[in-house]
């Protein structure tokens, strides 16, 4: 009787330990699950090539806007990034061409991905990038410096309250296994 009790306790103990292991595994399983959900729903899709502004936007008159350019690198990453001009006086509806210079300061071959950010954030929807190094991952040889052209149009539908837009790129490292330059 007593040993039967002991056995029942141990059986339950084993099942509960299995549950512990399963839940520990589940925590790690959340990582790929999260990635899949983000991909399916498009939640984390930050960089998408833009279409040209719509036809009715042309009805709105062009107006001057200040475009400020900036770049950021997280501490510990090998990049050096700078825009060749830091401030431009532009007009909405106008094709704007500018240049960024990226340098790989490390002695390794690295792949980078730039992510654009806009200030004010609502300006993001009106800045249409036609050509940008941020649209794909870029492969850099050790110590390589490259210049990239960026072509963009600011939609004429830009709300009147916005008269200055800051465009800032952060450049991130793409781990070796995930690079698809």
């Amino acid at each position: 009787m007593a040993s039967g009790m002991q056995a029942a306790n141990l059986t339950l103990l084993r099942r509960l330990l299995l549950l512990v292991l399963l839940m520990f595994g589940f925590a790690w399983g959340l990582v790929p699950l999260y990635r899949v959900i983000c991909e399916v729903t498009g939640l984390n899709r930050v960089v998408v090539a833009d279409a040209m502004p719509g036809r009715d936007a042309a009805q709105v008159a062009a107006r001057p806007v200040v475009l400020q350019l900036d770049a950021m690198v997280q501490p510990g990453l090998p990049w050096q990034v700078r825009p060749l001009q830091s401030r431009l006086q532009v007009k909405t509806g106008q094709f704007i061409q500018l240049q960024y210079e990226l340098r790989n300061n490390s002695r390794q071959q690295v792949v980078g991905q730039a992510i654009p950010r806009y200030l004010p954030a609502e300006a993001a929807a009106y800045v249409k990038k036609l050509e940008c190094f941020c649209l794909r991952q870029q492969l850099f040889q050790p110590g390589e410096t490259r210049r990239f052209p960026v072509v963009l149009v600011i939609d004429r539908a830009l709300p009147a309250a916005i008269d200055s837009i800051t465009l800032s790129y952060s450049v991130f490292d793409v781990p070796q296994g995930e690079a698809r330059p």
Partner: peptide, 14 residues
């Protein structure tokens, strides 16, 4: 506790 403490352990391990 049995179901979620391992998840916290997983998170802090990451």
């Amino acid at each position: 506790i049995i179901a979620v403490m391992p998840v916290l352990a997983g998170a802090v391990t990451m």
